[in-house]
Design a protein around this nucleic acid. Structure first.
Lengths: 249, 249
DNA sequence: TTAAAAAATGCATAAAACAGCAATTTAAAC
DNA sequence: GTTTAAATTGCTGTTTTATGCATTTTTTAA
């Protein structure tokens, strides 16, 4: 078997499965592991793939790490934000939650609509300040280092004093049966207060999170009035949510 | 399973839900907890996520450094911040005002001193969150678009409920005779509340602002306990301030 | 304060990488 | 066609890396 042929087979495998084990290739092509190792070493030098301990992975696989500086699933989240914007009315009073999806909503707010906007999230507040027609009110409290939002009793009390038309919230996990759940107990308390403070609650959620659960429960799925995903509302993935008294967008 | 695959799976989970438990990952990927721990440790070293006790969390949005590169008189302000830091005591409770000088103080806070820190300023809050040993409490309220601080009745009321060891404040104008003055009436009300909430008030002020006035008065110069400029305390420019009951640094 | 969970540490094992060598193949020159 | 040099390949022993386990230390929560 020619070297060329072998290397093409390796690249093919990597393109197909994003990964390959040296031992597998060696067995499949019936050559010694050293040969495969040398091949992969060459291909790595040629930037055709990335050699790792025990095998090789596709370049696309690694390049995704650059996306880390950006927002995960940005496309989807922008799509969700676009849909959410349509719910807004001139002069409305809304709450925008923390998290990257809600941050996208803050970015996507139209410049020409006058709004009053409450938030607990530092990054969201920043974004909102860039909107000339939005009055921003930050609900104070102790700040969570990782989530960059106000948490704790003070924040919850602050929420108890407001009543907004719409709360746009995110969630860690959502399931048609178990409802909205979170990893963090403090966050659950906060989200409960957010839902209480809203006439209508809108859940912004990428489809990847559907049908996942964690330990603490925020609310049942029917506490949500509208759920927005990046999917078309008729998509089959949403079937489980269709029974509930829930508007899908 | 290749190490890289595992690490990608971890990053993916973190990107999706902002946090993971090491035990969950170990179970899901069917490897020992030690392996997951080592993976997370590596990813943390690579700044791909943040390792915390029991799991890992996403870096959040902090990476979009809001660092304003063009701060006026940065050198001087950093010098002031350095001096201000010397006043801090372990376990102290302080307030940090808005403005670029105070922002430099927030940046200059030592990592190893445990502090509780109140602020009204969005940028200051962001900086403080980068300090592992600082508990940050944001005093909420309506946000001022240009100053990026909380203003208004709610913020003032929030200030009335706290009492800190030190308030570090800036000012628009300062004069040995007329005291601290501002262009903006709302800001004056706020600063008054800040001074009231502090046992001791420290004014951070570049020398360029000395002997300037404006229309609304925050307080007399002797309401200030310590004034820090970038100058040597013996500098002649400070002579006019030497008569007052005012510590110069 | 105590008890439980998690992290760190050291160690053992197995797999993988590497370096050097020898055998084989290929290419090129005469 | 023969010879020589270069490249390729597989093998051997050594080094490095990855992983899991046991033990100790630290952290967290009750």
């Amino acid at each position: 078997m020619l070297k060329e042929e072998r290397q093409r087979a390796i690249l093919n495998e990597v393109a197909l499965h994003n990964r390959v084990l040296l031992t597998d290739i060696a067995e499949a092509l019936d050559v010694s592991i050293d040969t495969v190792r040398r091949d992969v070493k060459e291909l790595d030098a040629e930037q055709k793939l990335r050699k790792v301990h025990g095998g090789a992975i596709s370049l696309g696989f690694t390049n995704q790490s650059i996306r880390n500086t950006n927002i995960y699933a940005l496309e989807e989240k922008m799509k969700i934000a676009e849909k959410a914007v349509k719910l807004l009315k001139e002069g409305g009073v809304i709450f925008i939650d923390g998290g990257t999806t809600c941050l996208e909503l803050a970015r996507a707010l139209p410049e020409n609509v006058r709004l009053t906007c409450f938030t607990l999230s530092l990054p969201v507040a920043f974004e909102l300040l860039a909107k000339p027609n939005v009055e921003v009110i930050f609900i104070g409290g102790q700040l969570s280092r990782d989530a960059q939002i106000a948490i704790g009793a003070h924040a919850i009390h602050g929420l108890s004093e407001i009543r907004v038309d719409y709360s746009f919230i995110g969630t860690g996990y959502v399931d048609s049966l178990y409802g909205l759940t979170e990893f963090d107990w403090d966050i659950v308390q906060l989200k409960k207060a957010v839902i209480k403070a809203a006439k209508k609650t809108v859940l912004l959620c990428i489809s990847e999170k559907l049908n996942s659960q964690h330990r603490y429960k925020t609310c049942d799925i029917n506490a949500i009035n509208t759920m927005i995903t990046e999917l078309d509302p008729t998509n089959n993935l949403l079937n489980l949510f269709r029974d509930h008294d829930l508007r899908l967008l």
